[in-house]
Simulated scan of single mutants.
Amino acid sequence: MIKILRYTEYLYLAVAVISIYKIVTLWSVNPKDTYIFIFFAVVSIAMFIFRRRYRKRFEQRKKDNQQ
């Protein structure tokens, strides 16, 4: 279960990196098309942080219950 949570964290981070790449490449061509990628980048980074905190809390609770 913990491994799956860790993989989803990095999936969100990958989406953020791809979105930032698209923002940089499309900004000079047409800035209006980049707004959706800005949204994806912000949401992906927020979800990465949220998932990481959730996983660490879950691990700590599991560790406390085993002791």
Rank of each mutant, 00 (worst) to 15 (best):
A16C: 06
Y7S: 12
Q60K: 12
I45S: 01
L11S: 07
V15N: 06
R52I: 01
R61I: 07
R57T: 10
S19H: 01
E9S: 07
L26G: 03
Y7N: 15
Y10A: 13
F39N: 12
S19P: 11
K3E: 11
S44R: 06
L13R: 11
F58M: 08
L5F: 06
Y35L: 15
W27K: 11
P31G: 10
A46E: 07
I38M: 03
S28Y: 04
K62C: 06
F48L: 02
D64H: 04
V43I: 10
K22F: 08
V42G: 05
K62R: 09
F58W: 03
A41D: 02
K63Y: 09
A46M: 08
R6F: 14
R55P: 01
R55E: 05
F48C: 09
I36W: 10
E9R: 01
L13W: 10
M1E: 12
L11T: 06
M47P: 05
I23N: 04
V43P: 03
V24H: 10
K22L: 06
Q66Y: 10
M47V: 03
F50H: 08
K62I: 09
K22T: 05
R55L: 08
A41S: 07
Y10M: 08
E59C: 12
Q66N: 15
Y10N: 09
K32Y: 08
S28G: 14
I2L: 14
K3M: 05
F39R: 00
R61K: 13
Y7M: 15
P31M: 10
S44Q: 01
Y54W: 13
K63C: 05
F58V: 08
I38G: 01
E9N: 08
L5I: 03
I49S: 02
F39L: 02
F39C: 09
V17H: 02
K32F: 09
I18R: 07
I18H: 01
F48P: 01
N30R: 10
R52S: 01
E9K: 04
T25R: 13
T34I: 08
F50E: 02
Q67L: 13
D64S: 03
Y12M: 15
I20P: 01
T25E: 14
I18Q: 06
I18D: 00
V17I: 09
K56Y: 07
T8W: 00
V17S: 12
R61Q: 11
Q60Y: 09
E59N: 12
Y10W: 13
F50C: 04
L13H: 12
K3N: 06
V29T: 10
D64E: 15
A14C: 10
S28E: 14
I45Y: 00
L11V: 08
A46W: 04
E59A: 09
R57C: 11
I4T: 12
F58C: 06
A14G: 15
L5D: 03
I23G: 05
A14I: 11
N65R: 10
F48V: 00
I23E: 13
E9V: 01
Y54M: 06
T25L: 15
F39P: 07
V43C: 05
I2T: 05
N30G: 01
W27C: 13
F58G: 05
R6C: 06
I18G: 01
R61L: 09
S19W: 00
F50I: 00
S28C: 13
F39G: 07
A14W: 07
W27L: 15
F48G: 03
Y21P: 04
I4Q: 07
D33N: 15
F50G: 03
R51L: 05
S28T: 11
N65T: 10
F40M: 02
Q66H: 12
S44H: 00
Y54V: 02
I45C: 02
M47K: 03
